[in-house]
Simulated assay, not measured.
Amino acid sequence: MIKADFMLDAKGLACPIPIVRTKKKMDELKAGQVLEVQATDKGSTADLQAWAKNTGHKYLETKIEGNILHHFLRKDGDHLLEEISAIPNISLEAFRKKVESREQPCILDVRETEEYEQAHIPGVIHIPLSEVEKRSNELNKDEEIYVICHSGKRSETAAQTMKKQGFKKLINVVPGMRDWRGEIEQ
């Protein structure tokens, strides 16, 4: 069993709050210390794995007790990954206008399957965040791709992963499906 130096209670919180609070707490830790994040959001496993990979921290494991997920992460040493260049954002209003135009933009929805099945924009490509690294070859690296999730945090993480793989025209939709008022499919 992994012994954590600190514990963060993120139970009852949904994306992006567990990641935001994890980042803040990790900033307070010393290199090598372990943080336990307790969460109830099923998507938090993929979110924290991807976040740790993109920030240079070490995702150790997740243990499940009842409906509580116990995520363990170790803060990386002084040689954290170089600062990741920002992915450009598009406002939800500007994105809605693009979707409603004749352009038919390429849209990648990175939410978990359960979220996607509840409601999604017609014609999107669905690849959950946890599968983006392995399945991004299904997309054209030179095409402009709008990446969307619930709030904009997972989509940013997915876009960072894809950028490292050579994708050139990625745009993060902020805030995402949480506030989407356009056409949907179920």
Rank of each mutant, 00 (worst) to 15 (best):
E28Q: 11
L29C: 00
K30H: 13
K30C: 05
K30P: 02
K30V: 05
A31T: 03
A31F: 05
A31P: 09
G32D: 01
V34C: 01
V34Q: 04
V34G: 01
V34Y: 01
L35K: 02
L35D: 02
L35V: 01
E36R: 07
E36I: 03
V37S: 01
Q38T: 11
A39T: 11
A39V: 11
T40K: 01
D41P: 00
D41K: 12
K42Y: 07
G43Y: 07
G43A: 09
G43N: 14
S44C: 15
S44M: 13
T45Q: 09
A46T: 00
A46G: 13
D47I: 04
L48C: 01
Q49H: 08
A50I: 11
W51T: 02
A52K: 04
A52N: 02
K53E: 15
K53S: 14
K53H: 08
N54M: 13
G56A: 07
G56F: 05
H57P: 02
H57S: 10
H57T: 09
K58G: 06
K58M: 14
L60N: 03
E61I: 09
T62R: 14
I64H: 12
G66M: 02
G66Q: 06
G66S: 06
G66Y: 03
G66L: 03
N67M: 05
N67L: 07
N67G: 10
I68G: 00
I68K: 01
L69M: 10
L69V: 00
F72Q: 02
F72L: 06
F72D: 00
L73W: 02
R74C: 04
R74N: 08
K75M: 06
K75R: 13
D76A: 14
D76L: 04
D76P: 00
D78C: 05
D78L: 13
H79G: 09
H79Q: 13
H79D: 15
L80I: 12
L80S: 12
L81N: 08
L81K: 14
L81D: 08
